[in-house]
Write a protein that binds this DNA or RNA. Structure first.
Lengths: 203, 203, 203, 203
DNA sequence: GATGAATGAGCATTCATTCAT
DNA sequence: GATGAATGAATGCTCATTCAT
């Protein structure tokens, strides 16, 4: 019998290693060999788990999507009030720390580039950035609409408002990455969501 | 002097060509030869004007910075009232169309990646993303502070507020690039700035 | 002893599988893993029976030699008359069908290449193409000489004549492989041997 | 202005180098770098002239076809009598020496393999072995039919006879390659064609 | 014996850059 | 200045072989 290996665990280990290198060096500059080293295995072994560099990339993309999405849902579920729900959702969107993906955050702009291009060239749905936005708009929009029904929020365009929240979230990420030491991601987000809600609340 | 002008013109032509290819194919996938073709010259000639692919990149980065900055300044200068100034500044930030850089927008995420990484690795200031943010914070912050002095805006953290505006701007770009056909960049920005200003204005 | 038999049977099974794949995909393009799959075993197991891909190749070579040789001998033994013997030998040489090696025939040119090169480089006798020719020349030459003694065949160079027969046989193979559908191997061979014998028979 | 280079000449130089290496080492074992070295250039330069190893192969194939074909035509044109024409054609078919391709001959079995496989897999016409046979059948068949009309040759199947001649030619090659030192290709061919013509000539 | 996970040497190909003309 | 031929370092990926279980 061959060595018994938890293939799923190993696969995730490689993926994690890859994400770190992607983040640190950029996708194009990432060598498969470096990924292997980081994962503590030989070059060839990576290919036992992932067909190609591209597949590794796709998986990284998915990994982030899934985990971020799940965090947002979970945090929103903790609250009943639309106001709190919305706030929790937005803050979770930006709470990369809780995902233990601190050193992986920088992969985002690369994935954005990749996602945008992929779509334009291949129409490859596996990488559709927009899908993410659609999902989040749904999530945040739900809270917004509830708030409007309850009369807590004024009549606003829920789609536009959720888009704005996501936009701010992404933008804050960017500024944080541009200057991690001095830019306080969490605080900026909190300040913003307060301001934002003041803007949409009745009263 | 005509010599000099010609040289500058040709250099810009190459730069423009490069930006288009960078945008369309991504930086890593862009071949110097393709740039040359697009610029209507021979491969070797690119090197008469730019030392390396990296310099071409730096120049592209600068080109965008300078032009966007100048547009924002100019638009803000057209108004006196802090409220209008702020609005004009934000909308200009997002008005890529006026820069005739429509087909170049997609270069942004790539430049973001590059800028972030450059800083972390080389500490290369030529690519400091943060510089841009500092500049814009200055610009928008000026209008905000003026408004607070005038009692138009409530007492808020000007730095945080400008950051939020830039964040939203960048984020809107992203959503627009992810789905150009259905996402209305201009309208989203306008809706947002109204909402935002409602949040900071004194009654 | 059943152990021994099983082992031999399995070995042949693998060899047969290998030959099929060699024939279908070419030697260089044949992966050990594919061979294993075809044989219904795991990759590593192939190595329990064959030291290396090269050994597999050698064995395939031998397998063909031995089986073809044996067929030719057997068919020739069925006749007494030199004329019939010669004809039977030539037709057997070309009767790949009877060897149940129809789908393996295409391996021949590969083995020829291999054999020729092997000799020039390593002087490896295990692969000596020429050995085959020497054997067949012996076999066919025997019938020819007998025929000359009997006065059935004119005085000819037996070596040259057997060479010619083998040459034609190999060549017909080639044409058949190049166009299996339209080239009738058997008929071509029969027509040829008649013609050939007319050339060497005394009136 | 760039270095002036006779691209066609250089291309042929590379092709010749490649053919030599293909012949000596076998196609699969041939490294592009070795080809480059043999041609006295750098690895990358090969790719300036040939898109890929496969293209190099195709070109080698064509090169042989064209040159062999032209030699045969030329030699046959030197004679009027069908008998001489046929003999000249056959001997030219086998006269690799006159093509200055002595050290390239061994490439043939590899090309045969390749050609046969190519056809079965891709249906790639660029490599159709059969095309060659069709051409030669035409050429030799012409002389045969003329001879039959003239009553020099008996009524035989021209197609079958030309096939047989080509078969013998290819087969002699093979034996010669298997044992260059002892096998006299030219003499074998001459002996054979005499014998063959004796078989088809009317008394 | 059998397995299949792991390995790493090996190779085709790309492309930024150089430089002779 | 402009050109494009030449270069060779760099890299993704393959696959024969090994070996722990």
């Amino acid at each position: 019998m061959p060595k018994k290996v938890d293939r799923e665990a190993k696969k995730e280990k490689i993926l994690r290693a890859a994400m770190k290198i992607f983040a640190r060096q950029g996708i194009a500059e990432t060598k498969m060999e470096t990924v292997a080293e980081k994962a503590g295995i030989a070059k060839g072994t990576v290919y036992e788990y992932f067909k190609s560099k591209d597949e590794l990339l796709q998986m990284a993309f998915n990994y982030l999507i899934v985990h971020m999405n799940s965090l947002v849902r979970q945090r929103m579920a903790e609250f009943q009030e639309p106001e709190e729900k919305l706030k929790a959702g937005f803050l979770a969107y930006v709470d990369i720390e809780s995902l233990n993906l601190n050193d992986v955050a920088q992969i985002l702009p690369d994935l954005w580039s990749y996602g945008i291009r992929q779509k334009e060239n291949d129409g490859d749905m596996a990488f559709d950035m927009n899908l993410i936005y659609v999902q989040y708009r749904e999530l945040l929009g739900g809270a917004l609409r509830k708030g409007m029904e309850n009369g807590i929020f004024g009549q606003i365009d829920a789609r536009a408002a959720s888009s704005a929240l996501m936009a701010a979230g992404d933008g804050f990420y960017l500024q944080w990455m541009a200057d991690r030491k001095n830019f306080n991601l969490k605080k900026s987000a909190e300040t913003f969501i307060e301001l934002f809600m003041r803007g949409i609340k009745t009263r």
